[in-house]
Simulated scan of single mutants.
Amino acid sequence: MDARRTTPTPRAVPDLPLHRLQVPLPHLLPFAIGGFDTIGPLSRAGFPHRHSFYEIVHVTGGRGAHVLDLVHRPLAPPQLCVITPGQVHYWADADELTGQVVLFNEDFLLGHPQDLAALRTLAARPGLGLGEQAAPIAALLADMEHEYRTRPSGFQSVLRASLHILIVRALRAGAPAGRPQPPGRPAELAAAFTRLIARPGGVRHTVASSAQELGVSPGHLQTLVKRGTGRTPGGLIRRQQTLEAKRLLACTDLTVRQIAKEAGFADPAYFCRFFRRETGMTPGEFRVRVDGNHHDPRIASIAAVPDGP
């Protein structure tokens, strides 16, 4: 099966495709699991692209590197690579990739909403080494793939429960930094807010429009997001705008004027001042430096910051 399909984004951004989840059993569950060959050629795509879904890749073999939001990590199997909606990633010079690819939509996690924040924490740590969790995770994924292929009675419940266990074990592998937020209204609202602004086009949201979409007042959003993340909603929006601008500068041929608009700025001159204040470089300087250079800390600094406090 080809579980992913490249489609233009709404208000398509040139040269930055959006992969949507296309599964063989969409009436049963928004989920797929299989090897790289089973999932399809897009599972090892070597060009920058986004997802509208979540992806967990269990890399068991191969050479090359995984690039996630400009962070370049050489492959060192066994490891997990977690990609969340809106992030830009690709496989650089990858050869003989082996392992399993797990694809799912947010709907598949309704029973464990805290896992959404955990996935964003994991996605901020590209190329997660598994340590003593390697064998349990490999066995768990093998069982999940068997459930998915054979579809015995109750397989949907088993897959949902197994995915939750997989996320918990991945957090254990990344401890102490991989620590989920405690459940509760501040953490839940903060997670919903960060997902909202992380979606393609999400950086156009203001604090007021975000509050309206989430069904709370701007003041309440301010209080709970600050309590849940240690950061203000405005600060998180600015960080996401900077990251989006970095993605587009590095991965497309859009002009600075076009990138300013995509990053939520009506005035290109103001965008340039904003970008320089946030990164220490003009957009043009950043675009020159990022070409083949994944070691300048100013390039990847924002991409590597998790959403938790």
Score class of each variant (00 low, 15 high):
Ile83Thr: 15
Leu80Phe: 15
Val57Gln: 13
Phe36Gln: 07
Thr84Cys: 15
Ile83Met: 14
Arg63Glu: 14
Gly64Arg: 09
Ser52Ala: 15
Ile83Leu: 14
Val82Thr: 05
Leu80Asn: 14
Thr38Asn: 03
Thr60Gly: 03
Ala45Trp: 08
Pro78Tyr: 05
Phe31Asn: 05
Tyr54Asn: 04
Ile33Cys: 03
Arg50Asn: 08
Phe47His: 10
Gln79Trp: 01
Ser43Glu: 09
Asp37Gln: 14
Gly35Val: 07
Tyr54Glu: 04
Ile33Lys: 00
Ala76Pro: 02
Pro30Leu: 04
Ser43Lys: 08
Pro85Leu: 14
Ile39Phe: 11
Gly61His: 00
Gly46Tyr: 01
Tyr54Ser: 02
Arg73Asn: 11
Gly35His: 06
His49Trp: 03
Asp37Val: 12
His72Pro: 01
Pro48Val: 06
Ala45Phe: 10
Cys81Trp: 02
Ala32Lys: 02
Arg44Ile: 04
Leu68Val: 12
Arg50Pro: 00
Pro41Gln: 04
His51Asp: 03
Gly34Lys: 04
Arg50Thr: 12
Arg50Tyr: 03
Pro78Cys: 13
Ile39Thr: 12
Gly40Arg: 01
Val59Tyr: 04
Phe53Ala: 13
Pro48Met: 02
His51Ala: 00
Arg50Leu: 07
Asp37Met: 05
Cys81Gly: 07
Gly61Trp: 09
Gly34Pro: 08
Val82Tyr: 10
His66Ser: 14
Gly64Pro: 12
Gly46Leu: 05
Arg44Gly: 05
Leu68Trp: 05
Ala32Thr: 00
Leu75Thr: 01
His58Asn: 08
Ile56Gly: 05
Leu75His: 02
Arg73Gly: 00
Arg44Glu: 05
Pro48Asp: 02
Leu70Met: 13
His51Asn: 15
Ala76Asp: 15
Thr60Met: 09
Val57Pro: 01
Arg73Leu: 01
Ile83Cys: 08
Thr60Gln: 07
Thr38Cys: 04
Pro85Asn: 12
Pro85Ile: 14
